[in-house]
Amino acid sequence: MDILKPGSQELLPAVVFVPGGGFMSANKDSSLQQRMTMAESGYVVASIEYRVTPRSTFPSPLEDVKSAIRYLRANAAKYGIDPDRIAVMGNSAGGYLAAFSGTTNEVAAFDKGDYLHLSSNVQAVIDLYGLSDLTKVGYGFSKEVEAVHDSPSAPEGMWVNGPAVFGPGGSIHSNPEKAAKANPITYITKDAPPFLIMHGDKDTLVSPNQTEILHEALVSQGVDSTYYVVQGAGHGGPQWVQTEITDILIAFLDKHLKDKKTK
Rank of each mutant, 00 (worst) to 15 (best):
M1E: 08
D2A: 08
G7S: 13
G7L: 08
L11H: 11
L12R: 13
S25F: 02
A26C: 14
D29G: 09
S30C: 04
S30T: 15
S31D: 15
Q34F: 02
Q34A: 10
R35M: 12
M36F: 01
T37I: 11
M38S: 05
A39P: 02
A39E: 06
R51V: 02
T53Q: 10
L62V: 10
V65R: 03
V65H: 00
K66S: 09
A68G: 14
A68R: 04
I69V: 15
R70H: 08
R70M: 04
N75R: 13
N75G: 03
I81S: 02
P83F: 03
I86V: 15
N91P: 00
S92N: 10
A93G: 14
Y96Q: 08
L97W: 05
L97G: 04
G102H: 07
V107P: 00
A109N: 09
A109D: 15
F110L: 07
D111G: 05
D111Q: 13
G113D: 07
L116H: 12
S119Q: 08
S120P: 09
Q123I: 02
L128E: 08
S132G: 10
V145Y: 09
E146V: 06
E146M: 12
A147F: 01
V148K: 14
D150E: 13
P152Y: 06
P152V: 08
P155L: 03
E156I: 02
V160D: 00
F166R: 15
G167T: 09
G170W: 03
I172P: 04
H173E: 02
N175E: 05
A180H: 10
N183E: 03
T186E: 09
T189D: 05
P193G: 06
P194G: 07
H199T: 12
D201R: 14
D203L: 10
D203C: 12
D203S: 12
T204H: 09
V206D: 03
S207M: 05
T211A: 12
L214S: 03
H215S: 12
Q221L: 01
Q221V: 00
V223G: 02
V223M: 06
S225E: 04
V229L: 15
V230D: 02
A233E: 08
G236N: 11
G237Q: 09
I245W: 11
T246W: 02
I248H: 04
A251E: 12
A251N: 14
L253T: 06
K255D: 05
H256C: 04
L257H: 10
K258F: 03
K260M: 06
K260H: 12
K261A: 15
K261M: 06
K261R: 15
T262W: 02
K263A: 11
K263S: 09
